[in-house]
Structure formats: structure tokens, C-alpha cells
């Protein structure tokens, strides 16, 4: 042992093993106390409702009256629930249409307003404005615009010579579906524009200059430089769009009430009906758990695809 040590431990020497454990324990307790409010918030507002939903899904739980344990009865019933699977398949169809539209239009807008030039602030604000309108308000507005008797679209179509007589856009599936999808693209593409614009602005200009000197065209530069470098913002936009679309409800409820003939019934709309029209809260909870599981799988797949590409595999 060095002489110095025998005269006592210097201030910065390591503490005795017992004291070290004690201090580490104290530090971990202190850390726990610091994060406790956040943990409590997560427990109360996320974990507990999730557990409660799982618990309810194992019961015959009517809105009025006593609940009764039925084990996996609701999950067995939902396999045979053609309405739910039909709603889920429509939701998937809508998700693909909305996501392609949102990312496509969002990217076009982002490229348009990416670089500073005169008037770009106005365009950015104008494109982003619909995002701050609530989904319910936007849906009510579009429901009115599409109303064949008092709205604007039908007279406009007649004025432009597209139709000869009043045309009810909400009466058949194809125009009704694209009207709602169009409304969502109008309302949300500004949000995706912001995400993608931040990605575009982070691409170093040197890369583009070097490629231009090497004779790369604008399309080649976009496909081979820009797109690979903004993979992360694209992935974020993709996950947000897929998750949001899979949970679509307000717009189909307000504009179409699931019509025509229940053809635009989304998965969440079906869950809402089971829970608050048929008053089957337990069954609604089971459907919610299944939808959550589907969303979880979809998100994991998207993240994995992104990670694999990032690692160059």
C-alpha cells in the first residue's frame, strides 16, 4: 500500500465498497423520485386505462346493468363478426389511399416551399392553415360543400359542364370515398409538408452541387441523393399517417355516417357503434385490443424496414 494512503484517504479516492453501494442506492432512489411524476402520469393515463380495457374485454359489460365474466368469449365472437373484418378491410384501403395522397402532396408542397424566396412565407402559412382546423369542423364544412341542395360542389360541377343535373357526391361509394379522402389530404398535407421540409433542408447542398457537376439530372438527384437522406422524416410521416388513418373516425361519421349502405364504416366507427349504440362495452374493448395489436404490428414492421435500410442490409 503506498505511504500516502496510510495517512488517510485523499478527497478524491474511491469510497469503501459499502459506502459506494449505499451512495449508488441513494442515487437510484433519487432518480426514481425525479421520474416518479412522469411514471405516475404514464401509469394513470396510459397503463391503467389499457389494463382496464383488457379487463373489460374479458366481460360481458353492458353500458347499463351488471357486468359478467366471460373469459375469451368476446375474442371468439369477433372472429365471426363479419362487420368488423369488413370495416377493417375498408380501413386498410383508406389507409393506403390517404397515406399515398398525404405523403405525395406533402412532398410536392415541401419541395415547393423548401428554399427561401419571395412569398414563400405566405405559401407555407397557407398550406399549413387547414391543419389547425379541427377534424370535426373541417368535416362539417365539407359536408356542407358536398350537399347537393345547398352546397357548392354540385352547382360548380354543373357550371363547368361536368354534370347536367344536380349530382349528389355522397350518394355512391366512389365519389363519397374520394371526397372524404380529398378532405383529409387538404387538411393534413400541410403537416406532412413541415415534416418533410425539415428533412429536405437538412440535406447538405454540397452533395447536390457535386452531383450536378457530374451531370446528374434533377430527377436523379432527387431519387439518389434527397430521398435516401430524408429516410427518417419519411418514416416518421409514414408511421403518423398509417396510425392516424387506421384510427379514422370523425370524417366518416360526420360527412357520411358510414354510408352509403355502411360501405365507409371504419374499424373505430364499428367499435364506437358496438360500445355506444349497442351498449356492448366489453365487446368494444375486445375490438379495441385487437386493433391496438394490429397497429403495434404495423408500426414494428415499418420501423424494422427503415432500420434495415439504414444499416445497409
Amino acid at each position: 500500500m503506498p505511504a500516502g494512503r496510510s495517512r488517510g484517504l485523499p478527497a478524491n479516492s474511491p469510497p469503501a465498497p459499502g459506502a459506494r453501494v449505499y451512495r449508488r442506492k441513494r442515487r437510484s432512489w433519487a432518480g426514481l423520485i425525479y421520474v416518479l411524476p412522469a411514471v405516475l402520469l404514464v401509469l394513470v393515463f396510459f397503463v391503467l386505462p389499457l389494463c382496464m380495457t383488457g379487463w373489460m374485454s374479458l366481460h360481458n359489460w353492458p353500458l347499463l346493468g351488471e357486468s359478467r365474466w366471460i373469459g375469451l368469449g368476446n375474442y371468439i365472437a369477433l372472429w365471426k363478426d363479419r362487420g368488423f373484418w369488413r370495416a377493417l378491410s375498408f380501413t386498410a384501403y383508406y389507409t393506403v389511399a390517404a397515406t399515398v395522397g398525404l405523403l405525395g402532396v406533402g412532398m410536392a408542397l415541401a419541395l415547393f416551399v423548401e428554399r427561401p424566396r419571395p412569398g414563400v412565407g405566405f405559401y407555407r402559412t397557407a398550406f399549413f392553415l387547414p391543419v389547425v382546423v379541427g377534424f370535426a369542423s373541417a368535416s362539417l364544412l365539407w359536408a356542407w360543400l358536398a350537399n347537393v341542395d345547398s352546397g357548392l360542389f354540385s352547382p360548380l360541377m354543373r357550371m363547368l359542364g361536368i354534370t347536367e343535373s344536380p349530382y349528389n357526391l355522397l350518394a355512391t361509394f366512389t365519389p363519397a370515398f374520394w371526397l372524404v379522402t380529398g378532405m383529409v389530404i387538404w387538411k393534413m398535407s400541410g403537416f406532412y409538408m413541415v415534416i418533410l421540409m425539415s428533412g429536405l433542408q437538412s440535406v447538405p447542398t454540397d452533395f447536390h452541387e457535386a452531383a450536378r457537376i457530374d451531370g446528374a439530372t434533377r430527377t436523379q438527384r432527387f431519387l439518389h441523393i434527397t430521398l435516401p437522406l430524408i429516410r427518417k422524416p419519411i418514416a416518421l410521416a409514414l408511421i403518423l399517417s398509417v396510425t392516424g388513418s387506421m384510427l379514422a373516425f370523425d370524417q366518416f361519421y360526420i360527412i357520411l355516417a358510414g354510408g352509403p349502405q355502411n360501405q365507409t364504416m371504419t374499424a373505430v366507427y364499428w367499435i364506437f357503434n358496438q360500445s355506444f349504440v349497442s351498449f356492448r362495452l366489453g365487446y368494444g374493448a375486445a375490438l379495441s385490443v385487437v386493433l391496438l395489436a394490429i397497429l403495434l404490428v404495423l408500426s414494428v414492421i415499418q420501423l424494422r424496414l427503415l432500420r434495415d435500410r439504414e444499416d445497409g442490409r
Partner: peptide, 23 residues
């Protein structure tokens, strides 16, 4: 006892059937 499911709901069989056959 299931008036809401059958009749009142916009997605119930009463409304969807009538909407279908009327038009």
C-alpha cells in the same frame, strides 16, 4: 329492447334497408 341498434342507428338494418330500397 334493442330499438337503438335496430332503428335509431344510422348503420342499423332499418335505416340501411330503407335507404337501399327507397332509392
Amino acid at each position: 329492447v334493442v330499438f337503438n341498434d335496430l332503428i335509431n342507428s344510422p348503420n342499423g338494418p332499418w335505416n340501411t334497408t330503407l335507404n337501399n330500397v327507397f332509392f
